[in-house]
Amino acid sequence: MAKVLKAKEHDIGGLNVKRVLPHQEKRMVGPFVFFDQMGPNNFPAGQGINVRPHPHIGLSTLTYLFDGSILHRDSLGNNLEIRPGDVNWMTSGKGITHSERESFEVRANPHSISGLQCWVALPEVMAEIEPSFNHVKKTNYRTLSTKE
């Protein structure tokens, strides 16, 4: 039987997040161990998100924005902005460290952010794979027709 889970609100590095998973009544759904709705948050000039460097192991995260931008940096040497419609897919495997902030240019002005982040547990056979990071720009998506 399906159960509707109510999100709990958290402040994560200055970002308001509504976290559905994990929930006291449901730790995970399928492979999904965290499901976060980021924002919507509005920031005045000089303020914004500051999720400091932190490690991940044994999972993948998918980040998708509706509004705003996030500056992603990681221990693999990636340093780029995710913008609305882009997808960041980070697989930690045996370990990766990353931070989520905004560029100086974005933070210098009033701005907003809104998006989703899903954390997916890797199957046990993939838990120790090499970490990887893929960034797919919105413009690189193939449009599916209704005939496919």
Rank of each mutant, 00 (worst) to 15 (best):
R101E: 11
G30A: 01
A2I: 10
S114H: 13
A7F: 08
S103F: 03
G93V: 11
V33Q: 04
P123Q: 12
Q117K: 05
K137A: 14
N88S: 07
N134W: 12
F35A: 12
N109Q: 11
I96R: 00
E81Y: 06
S75F: 02
A121I: 02
E148V: 15
Q47Y: 05
N109F: 05
I129K: 00
Q47D: 09
C118K: 04
E105K: 13
L116A: 06
R83H: 14
V29F: 14
L80I: 08
W89K: 00
L116I: 04
V4F: 02
M90V: 13
I96F: 01
K6P: 04
N109G: 03
T61F: 01
R107H: 00
N79R: 13
F43R: 00
L65W: 08
Y64N: 05
G13T: 11
G68R: 04
K8M: 09
L116W: 05
D74Y: 07
L80P: 06
P84N: 13
N88T: 04
Y141V: 15
N41P: 00
L21D: 04
D74F: 03
G39K: 10
K3S: 07
Y141H: 15
H10A: 04
K6E: 10
A2C: 06
L59S: 02
M28V: 10
D86S: 13
H111A: 03
D67H: 12
K26S: 10
T61K: 05
F43C: 07
K8I: 05
N42P: 07
N134I: 15
N78S: 15
K147V: 14
N78A: 13
R101A: 09
G58E: 10
I12V: 14
A127Q: 04
Q24F: 11
R83V: 06
N88D: 05
E148T: 15
R101S: 11
L62Y: 15
E81F: 06
Q37D: 15
I113R: 08
I82A: 10
S99D: 02
P123S: 12
E148D: 15
A7D: 10
G85H: 01
E102T: 10
P44W: 00
R107P: 00
G30Y: 06
G30E: 09
V120C: 07
Y64G: 04
N88L: 11
S112E: 07
P55K: 00
T63M: 01
T143S: 12
F32M: 07
G115S: 13
K18V: 02
F133N: 08
A121Y: 12
L5P: 00
